[in-house]
Each structure stands twice: as structure tokens, then as C-alpha cells.
Nucleic acid binder design. Structure first.
Lengths: 250, 250
DNA sequence: GAGTGGTCTAGACCACCGT
DNA sequence: CGGTGGTCTAGACCACTCA
């Protein structure tokens, strides 16, 4: 009944070997979507593994979306859900290095001022409070790639360190300047058309497709401690999602 | 020494209770990023739990990115990485229902033809092979939301079932018509400007920001079995990423 | 060498599901 | 009712790290 066997001398731990065996059976079609796997006890008997080890293996497969468990019923092969996608955005700096391009951040503007209405709303500022604003231009190989505009509460008396603003991530700037640690972030991504100063800084024609990545940072008490956005060149950034054996459903 | 305790009468399993206790200590700042947690054995003693139960709890926290383990050294509180984001795209139909809008898919065009050069390249077609193309308009509350254009190998002699094309997901259409199960997908997302027939179908001015979601579907042998794209209205769709306690690093 | 996390075992009780 | 997965226990051995 058992096809392959567990190699106890291998460096690959048994739970992972079993996962590979089962994955193979699923991808080869021996186990089809909707089919039930042998029970945990049965797999344990078949491959001479304890039940906890079998469960560790099934956890791995479940995390990858290949199988899913129903208490009281059994474990089943999932149906591929190809229309579901997960995108990951890496930090700009690392992303550029990964691509082999030399990144650079240029501080374009910094100032403290009374907030524009939109900004005051986003940061939930009280009347009279002021904002610290900064604008950075992100380049790669001296080509402008993105414009960053960020707003945060201005704390009176605190020095504004320009070199910090130049290379630190927004959340770090906030925790350094305002003594609060942002612990939650909300990011909104939309397509937009480049306009005004953004188009100028990016050296692209007005109306060109760009990404608009809006970001809210929250402190532990759910206060908004930072708001702002990136404008990325649409022709230089593509969100890619590889759905390997892919998340399943049912 | 122990702060809170495990409630053995609760319905919440002990491993989860401990996870909540530790999460609380992390979010409240009692445990700061970089701090080491008590060892697994120590936590077990402190809360009267077996080591496996403590490990299950730490797994939960590690999956959420709150902590990370170093073999031989210990388990540490992670540093928040707020600039990293993960976006998930749900299927259009479910997404609309979730929003309380009634979804509809209209089949705009279907035809079999010699492929345009671009399509032939994407699908890696041999000379003389033909493609099955279809175009769908996705609506919500009778408002056009997206245009879908999909291309796949045409298999001679197979009937083209229009009602299938109307409501089935692309990967299902392929597996039904071509007897191959797509097992991998590659998705590319870019901002674009609406043009030509797309703008007409979506009833938006040419040049409006839209999403262009390009999709490749692969069979088990890495053959491209489907290619196509969606054009989504940029004003109606926003990618949202909530980075709750957020993935950590280090 | 003492302590850490990673893995494994052979039991156990429970809630849930189908018949 | 018997079988399933979900959880828990009290041991064990290993490779690794650090003093």
C-alpha cells in the first residue's frame, strides 16, 4: 500500500519527507482535488511515524494551501484557486539592490506648517497643531523612480535632523521624532495619472500611469501617527504574484 | 513572576491564551523588539504547560511575525517592518458579494482565430495553431467595473459552450475545454490609462487610471495554457493591506 | 558543558461527524 | 457508535550557540 518510504538516515526530517511524498501524489494527479487523504493514524501506521509527526507534515501542506482539514471528517486535497493572488511589496532600497541598481534618496523639501485640510483630517489634528512634512525623491542609477510625501505630528522643540529624514524609513522617523512606536500600518494602492510637481520630479509626461501608494501608520492606541504616500512610476514597477502550487479552497 | 495565568476551564485553548498573554506584553511594550523571550522550558514551568504546547503558541506568534526563533540562542521579539506589505486579491464575484453589490458577467465576444503576434508569443503557439479568445464585461449593480480578455489554445472539434464562458473562471474554462489542469499562475499588476474599446466598455473617459492585471496560467509541465488580462476601473478598486501587529524582521 | 530551539514518540482526552 | 481531527502531556535525542 505504501508507495515511497521514509529514509531515516537522510538529513531531511521525516515530516518533510512525508510532505514531499504527499505533494508528489497531489501534483501527479494520484490524489485529485476533493479526494480525502488517509487519516492521520493511518498515515502514521503506513509510514511508521507518530501521529504528531504526521500532523506536522499535514500542517506544512495546509499552510501551502494544498490540503485542508475538517474536524470529524478528514483531510482533503484542496482545489486550486488561481484567481486569488498575494502581492508583496519589498522596501524600495532592498528592492533596488536586488535588481542590481544603485538606489539613492534625495531630500526635496522639509517644512513645518499649518496642515492643509486634507492632511489635518487624515492625521486627526486638533486646531492649531502643526505638521512636519517632508518630500523625498527616490532614484535608481540617477533615474527618478518615485516621489514620497509624508506628514506627521510636529513636536515643538524637537530638532529636525535632515540627514535622518534623508535615509530613514517613515516609521523610524516617527518613532525617533515623536517617541511613539508605530505598530500597525494600513496601505492603499491605486493607479493614478501623474500630475503637477510629481510628473516634473519623475520626469515623465503629465497623465502617465503611476502607482499611488497611500500609507497610514498607527500607534498602539490606534492614533494615526503618520500619513503620506508614494508616487511610483508605473512603467518601472510591476506587482508580481507567483502562485506556485497555489492556495486552494474548499 | 508569572503575570497572567492560564484558565483551564476556558474554551480558549491554553496555547492560544498564552499567545494572547505574550502578544499583550509585546504590544504594551513590556517586551520590546530585540528582547528575548523566556525559553520554552521556562515558559512551560511558569504557566504549567508542556513544552509542545508552548511551542504551538510560539508558532502562532512566529507566523504572525511577532517573534522569531534562533536555534541554540532563543526566541526574540521581532522588529516591525512596516514598509513591507502583502496584498490579496479576492475573486471578483465574491468580492462584489462581500461588498453587497450584485455582480454580473456579460459575454461580449468569443471567437477562434489566428493569433495576433503578441498573443502567439505569450502562449508560445506554433505556426498555424489557433486561439480561442473571449471577452467579458464584469458589472456590479449594472455599472461596468472591469473588462476581461482571455486567450487559450483552441482545440479542434471541441464545442464552445457560451454559457460556460459566461460565468466560469478562466482556469476552469481551460481545464474543461483543453483537458489540462492549470496548477500555477503568474500575475502582473500595473497601472495604465484606459484606451479604446476598454474605455468605451467601462464608460470612462479615455486616459482614466485603470488597473491592468495580466495573468499567465501554467500546466504541470510548465506550458503556458492561458494568457489574458483584466482592466479594472481605478476609481472603484483599491488594494488594501492591513499590517496588523505586522510582519517583523531580524 | 549547559542551555537553546528543532524534532520525534507513544500515549491521552475532547468535540465533532457520519452511520 | 466508531472514526476523525484538535489539543495536550512527559518524556527523549539532536545540532547549535555561547561562555
Amino acid at each position: 500500500m505504501a508507495g515511497d518510504k521514509i529514509d531515516r538516515k537522510s538529513f531531511v526530517p521525516p515530516y518533510f519527507q512525508l510532505a514531499q511524498i504527499l505533494e508528489q501524489k497531489i501534483l501527479s494527479g494520484e490524489l485529485k482535488p476533493g479526494d480525502s487523504l488517509p487519516s492521520e493514524n493511518e498515515l502514521g501506521r503506513e509510514y511508521n511515524l507518530s501521529r504528531m509527526t504526521v500532523r506536522k507534515c499535514l500542517n506544512v501542506l495546509a499552510e501551502r494551501g494544498l490540503v485542508h482539514a475538517h474536524p470529524g471528517r478528514g483531510t482533503f486535497v484542496s482545489r486550486p484557486a488561481l484567481d486569488r493572488a498575494v502581492f508583496t511589496i519589498e522596501e524600495y532600497h532592498q528592492e533596488m539592490l536586488r535588481r542590481g541598481l544603485s538606489p539613492e534618496a534625495r531630500l526635496i523639501a522639509v517644512h513645518v506648517s499649518r496642515p492643509a485640510e486634507e492632511v489635518g483630517e487624515k492625521l486627526k489634528l486638533k486646531a492649531g497643531e502643526r505638521v512636519l512634512y517632508f518630500c523625498r525623491l527616490l532614484l535608481a542609477e540617477n533615474v527618478p523612480m518615485a516621489v514620497e510625501r509624508k506628514y506627521m505630528h510636529f513636536k515643538k522643540g524637537r530638532p529636525i535632523l535632515e540627514n535622518e529624514l534623508q535615509y530613514k524609513a517613515f516609521s523610524e522617523v516617527i518613532s525617533a521624532h515623536n517617541d511613539v512606536l508605530p505598530v500597525r500600518s494600513r496601505i492603499l494602492l491605486r493607479p493614478a495619472a501623474a500630475a503637477g510637481e510629481d510628473a516634473e520630479l519623475l520626469q515623465i509626461p503629465p497623465g502617465s500611469p503611476v502607482w499611488r501608494l497611500e500609507q497610514f501608520l498607527y500607534a498602539g492606541d490606534e492614533t494615526v501617527v503618520g500619513w503620506g504616500f508614494f508616487i511610483f512610476r508605473g512603467d518601472r514597477f510591476t506587482l508580481v504574484s507567483e502562485v506556485r502550487p497555489l492556495k486552494g479552497v474548499d
